[in-house]
Structure formats: structure tokens, C-alpha cells
Design a binder for these strands. Structure first.
Lengths: 210, 210
DNA sequence: TAAATGATGTAACAATTGTTACAGAACTCT
DNA sequence: AGAGTTCTGTAACAATTGTTACATCATTTA
């Protein structure tokens, strides 16, 4: 664990804080598709991402879904930070996008570390900032792009996160993430294939034009 | 100024911090409609809202517009906090929704106060949290509601912010805020009027069913 | 191997939202 | 009062997105 922390946070956290994390943190592994935090869950731990990627989604009361953003190595879920600061119930769902390794930190540590470690304060602020930025981009996408453009951006983003132009995903899952219907996605994917940007396979979408 | 600060922040900030704000803050008044911060502006001051309300909007490269949220008494613009922490250029536009009184605080104070005042740290975190929540709601509205519902919610929200069921606003402005066209808004407003929820006047929308 | 399940392709149609065009009302300014 | 401007109402139509229905193909399971 020490080694993993070094790899990810050596230049971010002071040694004393790395020690603290090593002492109180619990390393946990998730397989692709595992739900890490669900809407309504009480948050007892802050997840710090060591390896893999996490998909953060919003769900409404009817179970309708929308992808908000991905978390990658070294990220922390800002929504759980929010939870640590008052409300303790999750507003979002976090799901492992691929096999993922996480350090769980008890939320009580939050305020102690804010007081004790300058590097933790910086880290928490930067997490807030990048999450606000990502939310802003999600809003831009919803408000200013049509489904064709949103789909293309979604696929490109996914190529970056998974580091693979062969995306293992079904039309239905894409539809859930973009909050639309499978038929709409199939239709648009076909038109993107005709444009030569993709090649469609079963359970897979190959991104050609990157 | 001292009195104004007392009114708004007495129970939020410790006396020493209130003194600091009194020393370095600049009180400024804006009239309804004034642009306080524009996209691309370099941020030199954090605005702390004393009286009135501020409309925070997102604009894309084509000048397309979308209302994000309102700031009210005692709020600070979290986007300028973001700016203080790195990028220094505004991602949003802040416009006075009504006559508004603001304290401007030089951004350099930000990190000093974070170090020196516990109440400032709390305040900044809570600002981030409420802004994240509002962004989440903006996303929910865009993703999960149709224009009819978004319009109704928008009008209700505006009644709360302005504390007046007689809203002084044109169809065109509503259309800008919701990022749609004036014709669409006129059409939906007419249907809401037929439902008995509104009464339409020139430059005014009267909310009946509150 | 046959049946069941899941994924994709596509047509036809419905609903919502966006666009263009124009008319008339209300207001402002001189 | 008259001219110009802004705001609202509405029709007609276009484009996008959503829905239903069903066929086909691939994969898994019995």
C-alpha cells in the first residue's frame, strides 16, 4: 500500500500525510461494473482512486440516469467531500468503469487533515475546482450540443479514459449514460459509421478517426 | 459598511475576520441589469453579496446563454473562488438581477484567510458545496425535464428570489435564460396561462398559483 | 442442438422543440 | 399626433428526438 500511495501522491502530499493515509486508509478492489457508492447511501469513507476509473452518474426519482464525469488516478470524489461537510447522503452513484483500486478514508479525518496538512487543503480545493469544471462541461454539453455531438464527445472521452479505441460497450449502456433511448443511439452510431468515424461490432464500438 | 457586514456575516465570521473584511473590502453598488463579471474577465476581487441578487450564467462561444443559478445575501461566487485557486479567468457571467450591494475582496486575501480564519475555511467550503448542489440541480433540470417543466420551475424560482409574484421580465429574456427561442417561450407561457397558473402582461408575468 | 436471451438494425410514426414569417398591440420619443 | 421601436401572439413548417414494433444475428444455456 505504501508503494501505491507513493506512486500516486508522492508529489501531492507531504510525508506525514502519506503516513496518516497509510495508517487509517483501507485499500479495496472493485471489478468493472461494481457499484461503489449508490444514491442515498450514507457516506462513511472518502474514496481516493489509486488505479482504474470510476463513472459518476446522476439518477432521478424515476431511475433515469445521466453520466456526470469520470474519476481517474489520484482523484477523489468531490461529492463525498460535500457529504463530509454536512449532508451525509450521496447524491450520485459511483461505479467502477474498469477494475479499480481505491483507498477508503474515514470521513472523520477530513476536518483533522484540513487543519493539520497544507497539502490536504490544496488537494481538496483542487478537487472541488476540477469537479466544478467538469460539472460546467456537463451543463455545456446538455445545453449547447445536440445528441449527435454529445455522442461523439462521449465516445472520444471514453477512449481517453479507457486508453483504448476499441470500446467495450453496448448501445443500451451508451443510451443510459446520455439519458436517451437505445434506438436513438443505434441510429446515430450508424450515421457515424457511415461518416467513417466508427466501426460497429457486437458489444464493441471501434473509434477510427482519433 | 461595518453595520452591513454585521447584518450579513455576524454569525458566520469571527470578529477578527469581520475587521479584516472591513479593512480591505470595497463596497460597490450595481443597478439591475449591470454586468458584474463577464466571461473571460480576469478576476481580481471576490464578490461577497450584501443586498440584492445576482444571476450567474454560462455562455458558449457562439454567445448562446444559459442560467446557472442565483446568488443571494451572504453568498459568494464559487466560480471566483475557483479562479482564485489557479485559473484567473472567469468561466461565467454575473449580472445584477436587481439593485445589488457587494463587498469586493482582493483575491490575494483568499489564501491568507484560509490559513488564518477557521470561519473563512468553513464559509468557503460551504460555498463550494451549495454551488455544487445548484450545478447538480441545473443538470437535473436540463437532463430530466421538458421545456414546459423547466419554464414553470424557472418562474417559481424567480418568484422566490425576487420575493414578488409579479415578475418583470420579457419572453425574450426567459428564452435566453433557458437557452431556447422566444417563440417557444411565448407558446408555453400561453399554455400555462390557459392552465390558470399565470396571467400575462406586457413586460410582466404574474404568477397566480403559488 | 434447440431454445432462450441479448444486441443490433430499421421502419413508421408521435411528440417536442426550433425556425421563419408576419400582424397587431403597447410603449417611447419627438 | 405620428413614427419608430419593442413586445407579444400565432400560423405553418422543419428538424430533432422519442416510441413502438418487429426482424435478424450472435451468444449463452438447457
Amino acid at each position: 500500500m505504501k508503494a501505491l500511495l507513493q506512486d500516486n501522491f508522492e508529489y501531492l502530499f507531504e510525508p506525514a500525510l502519506l503516513n496518516e493515509i497509510d495508517n487509517v486508509g483501507i485499500v479495496k478492489d472493485f471489478a468493472a461494473g461494481d457499484v461503489i457508492i449508490n444514491i442515498g447511501d450514507t457516506i462513511r469513507y472518502m474514496p481516493l482512486l489509486l488505479e482504474g476509473a470510476i463513472k459518476v452518474s446522476r439518477l432521478d426519482d424515476d431511475g433515469d440516469e445521466l453520466l456526470l464525469y469520470y474519476l481517474e488516478r489520484g482523484d477523489v470524489c468531490a461529492m463525498t467531500l460535500t457529504c463530509c461537510m454536512g449532508n451525509s447522503v450521496s447524491e450520485i452513484r459511483a461505479m467502477a468503469e474498469m477494475d479499480t483500486k481505491i483507498v477508503l478514508i474515514p470521513v472523520q479525518k477530513m476536518s483533522d487533515w484540513l487543519r493539520d496538512f497544507h497539502s490536504w487543503r490544496t488537494f481538496v480545493f483542487e478537487s472541488y475546482n476540477s469537479r466544478l469544471k467538469e460539472m460546467l462541461e456537463a451543463i455545456d454539453n446538455l445545453a449547447f450540443l445536440n445528441m449527435h455531438e454529445r455522442l461523439l464527445k462521449y465516445l472520444k472521452h471514453k477512449v481517453i479514459v479507457t486508453k483504448d479505441t476499441m470500446l467495450s460497450i453496448t448501445h443500451q449502456t451508451v443510451a443510459y449514460d446520455l439519458h436517451t433511448s437505445r434506438v436513438v443511439i443505434s441510429r446515430l452510431l450508424k450515421s457515424l459509421e457511415k461518416e467513417g468515424k466508427l466501426k460497429l461490432h457486437r458489444n464493441k464500438i471501434e473509434f477510427l478517426d482519433f
